[in-house]
Design a binder for these strands. Structure first.
Lengths: 180, 180
DNA sequence: CGTCACATGTAAGCGGTTACATGATTCC
DNA sequence: GGAATCATGTAACCGCTTACATGTGACG
């Protein structure tokens, strides 16, 4: 597994829960995971190919029930060990790149109305995302008997907690910009 | 300016406040900005070179008071306009990549103690960062008469608000992991 | 006198996205 | 029959980091 390529571990993590095709993996990443990680076909398929060679994943004998080609992947014992080793590794890179904050930081050369506008755009996005997360939360609460779901739940709670903090900040920031 | 290269706008933003060398720019980025954006010498120097060609920045006549080579850059009128156009552009990509959340999401295959450990590591980092941000906050509050500083202040408030939310989440998450 | 901070720059490589190419299947 | 979705894969390109190369100035 490539040293700093995390898509491998995302795929491994998803396959640890259930067998999936590359296409399925992409859909999963575009769901709840997309709030803290992203991935495209252009990275998923090559990664699957490489991990197959390394025997971290393997193809399930394709069920020919439907005629269309469809490669279902399964995690191997080695794959599970790789995943566990990563989970046990204390190093975790948490990286935030917020263009909105850049626009706050450098907003001083413009009229304050521009910054207020940028806060409002951000606020709108956050509100929409918060709705989605609350929907996920409601769904997960029905199935918390499953250990994996409890873990998914943690990330959803994280999202809600931070997005609510964002909203609080939006109000504070707008207030400051409207002062004086 | 390259379409999706944001380092240009970071440099422009910093130069709008004061004239700086490439080295100075790097130091600034490693300060308060590092909480929401990063940049290395390997991207700063080439960007400065290209932007000089495009006349978004220019070299200040080097003061030869000290013998060592030192290129101080200044923003041009075109540079300021580019910066303003970007501030007025409603599109803003806000991207979060948290390996810690990935470890939460996929933590189900391991003992809960592993997830708790990962939460604690995260919590420790957040606490340290929060200290730094509070220090920045204290410093900025003394100089809020400057419009740029008010804008810097907004980003520091954002950091504090979200990091405090992270800490709240850490407690919740640890509690859930210790249940049952 | 050695080490650290200052200072500028280049080259290789990496992880990733975007766009393209291709084709089957499902559903209205 | 046409559109949307399912499904896999490749190639070009991009922004960026890491590591390297080089040298000066300040300080204990």
């Amino acid at each position: 597994m490539a040293k700093d390529r995390k898509i491998d571990v995302v795929i491994l993590g998803l396959l640890a829960h259930e067998d999936l095709t590359g296409y399925d993996i992409k859909k999963q990443i575009d769901g709840a995971i997309s709030f803290f990680w992203k991935g495209s076909f252009g990275s998923i398929y090559p990664a699957l190919g490489e991990m197959e060679k390394q025997e971290l994943v393997k193809r399930k004998k394709s069920d020919k029930s439907s005629g269309r080609e469809k490669i279902v992947y399964q995690i191997t014992k080695d794959g599970k060990e790789t995943l566990k080793a990563w989970l046990n590794d204390e190093k975790a890179i948490n990286d935030l790149k917020y263009e909105t904050l850049l626009k706050m930081y450098f907003g001083g050369i413009q009229d304050r109305s521009v910054t207020i506008r940028n806060i409002e755009i951000f606020e709108q996005q956050v509100k929409e995302n918060l709705e989605v997360l609350k929907f996920y939360k409601g769904n997960l609460e029905k199935v918390l008997d499953n250990e994996d779901h409890v873990h998914y739940y943690l990330t959803v709670l994280f999202g809600i907690e931070t997005y609510e903090a964002y909203l609080k900040w939006c109000n504070k920031a707008k207030k400051i910009m409207k002062e004086k």
